[in-house]
Design a protein around this nucleic acid. Structure first.
Lengths: 104, 104
DNA sequence: TTATCATATCGAAAGTTTCCGATGTGTCAA
DNA sequence: TTGACACATCGGAAACTTTCGATATGATAA
């Protein structure tokens, strides 16, 4: 187990339709977002404003939800210039799947 | 997918220390409960009053938590005489693990 | 049939989550 | 160096969850 998991934090983060939605969109970012030029969405991520648009909630709510997902370890953030790009933490998600299968 | 899953309901059910605890105890019932005579805890389950004792919360809370776990499909209940025996739904739990690994 | 035990359900106080608008902070371009 | 944009954070109203005690329901035994 490389990533330190707080199962309750993870399950809480996943207990909300919008956050589940975001995680799902980020699985296939090309389908749901337009890339910034020079940014590979799959490698770097998607910025908060694009997620805000797709989510149809305020920037404030989107930012909070992303930070809940980040604290749970489900996504990672990278700031480039004025944008912060979020992408799935596939390794952590795989480990949670394994945890569920083996420990639950 | 045999069992109909509501991921949000499942994650909500798992977002609570006591409910996670119950699910964990039921994995190895011999370790945490005393069997009723003639009842194989692994096959039939554990009654609400024993779970109440181990949980150290009221009967009312325990009963509600079990019913949340049941609605999420994580446990099943069987009434025998005046007792209701709850046990893990191993198949559903396995499917949730698979769902997590494949769909999340 | 009534008393008793096991369980479920109701109603409520306290705590948490959801989601917002307003405001603060970091970055870049003019 | 200021204006504008992207993002984070604060404070709060409404909705939901946690947990309880009281009470209802179901089953059995006397």
């Amino acid at each position: 187990m490389i990533i330190c998991m707080e199962p309750i934090e993870i399950f809480k983060a996943l207990s909300n339709e919008s956050r589940l939605q975001i995680l799902h969109w980020l699985k296939d970012p090309e389908k749901h977002f337009t890339p910034h030029e020079g940014i590979d969405m799959r490698k770097i991520g998607v910025c908060v404003c694009q997620i805000t648009d797709t989510l149809k909630m305020t920037q404030s709510t989107t930012s909070q939800y992303l930070s809940i997902l980040q604290r749970a370890g489900l996504v990672t953030a990278e700031r480039i210039g004025k944008y912060t790009y979020f992408k799935r933490n596939e390794e952590a998600i795989r480990e949670i799947g394994a945890f569920f299968t083996n420990e639950m």
